[in-house]
């Protein structure tokens, strides 16, 4: 088993203690991302994705629980910052600077800097190095930002909605660059990226974390996630026996038919249920749709996955 690059234990973040109007941005988040993975972070707006990424990079401090990245608590010591790359949602670049200016800054600020490969990466993408990034397309700007983040040869790279503003082609190219960098690193680069686009995550990720209402609902290997979730249908009947053995995420009863969106926690013994595979999109929606469940029920969901 490869060691974990990212570990959180009952991690929580509450904002607004000074104003007295406190709000949990993240609660009871327990997860593990093995080294060398590309982990997708999915959830509704306000589910805590940005907060989790900020806690991982040390831009926010935990209110409860613990977080470890590469075996260290995130902070501003140089050894930690050397190994961790972070790209905020708004793609922070200097609009009046050229791509080459940004590369020079990267070389100046980082103790380790892959000057030639970073330059080549941008040239391969036909990005004019002498053009101001403010006049570039969104896709080109995102590629410059990604090249900067990769240039320091990080061991963990955290990306907050990196493709949200990009058109489909630019998105595909961004993810291809990211995947190629992970392939090149041969297991020594771990990526955590948040996105709403489940179809993108399905291609590029091999690990998935689902957050809803500031809680972790699912954190597991992506192939295992897809293999263990099924849609069970049968002529209308009591879903009780299935509920006692497995985790039912969603139930739909019509006068004639019962449909259950289920995570199988073992073999399915009753062959009278018709069992169909679920797409990753359906699985994510089933988790996000069960927000109204009680805390106790949710913790059993998490408990089963770990």
């Amino acid at each position: 088993m490869t060691p974990a690059a990212v570990t959180t234990e009952q991690l929580g973040k509450r904002y607004g203690q000074r104003t007295g109007r406190t709000k949990w941005a993240l609660r009871d988040c327990t997860l593990e991302v093995p080294e060398g993975r590309i982990c997708g972070l999915v959830g509704a707006n306000g589910a805590g994705k940005t907060t989790l990424l900020k806690l991982l990079v040390g831009l926010a401090r935990p209110t409860t629980g613990s977080v470890q990245v590469l075996g260290r608590a995130p902070g501003d010591d140089p050894a930690f910052l050397r190994d961790v790359g972070y790209l905020a949602q708004e793609v922070p670049l200097y609009r009046r600077w050229t791509a080459a200016d940004h590369l020079a800054m990267g070389a100046h600020l980082n103790p380790v800097w892959d000057a030639a490969p970073t330059r080549q990466r941008l040239l391969d993408l036909d990005i004019p190095l002498d053009q101001r990034v403010g006049t570039m397309s969104g896709g080109q700007r995102a590629q410059v930002a990604l090249a900067l983040a990769l240039g320091k040869r990080p061991r963990v790279l955290l990306l907050d909605e990196p493709v949200a503003a990009l058109d489909p082609l630019a998105r595909r190219e961004f993810l291809a660059t990211l995947g190629a960098a992970v392939a090149e690193a041969e297991g020594s680069l771990t990526v955590v990226l948040s996105s709403h686009l489940v179809s993108d995550l399905e291609r590029i990720c091999d690990h998935l974390v689902v957050l809803a209402e500031s809680r972790t609902l699912l954190a597991d290997d992506l192939d295992d996630v897809v293999a263990s979730h099924r849609l069970l249908t049968a002529p209308r009947r009591d879903p009780g026996p299935i509920e006692r053995q497995h985790t039912v995420l969603r139930t739909e009863q019509t006068p004639r038919q019962t449909s259950l969106w289920v995570r199988l926690d073992g073999p399915l013994h009753d062959p009278t249920w018709h069992s169909d595979p679920l797409s990753l999109e359906d699985i994510v929606l089933a988790y996000l749709g069960q927000r109204s469940r009680t805390t106790a029920e949710l913790s059993t969901v998490i408990g089963g996955v770990r």
């Binding site: 060398g36 590309i38 291809a176 995947g179 992970v182 392939a183 090149e184 291609r203 590029i204 990720c205």
Partner: peptide, 18 residues
Amino acid sequence: TVKDVVAELAINPNTVLK
């Protein structure tokens, strides 16, 4: 190579390795 497949299809490198 794994990198070629990943760069072409934008899929996960571990998936190709698997």
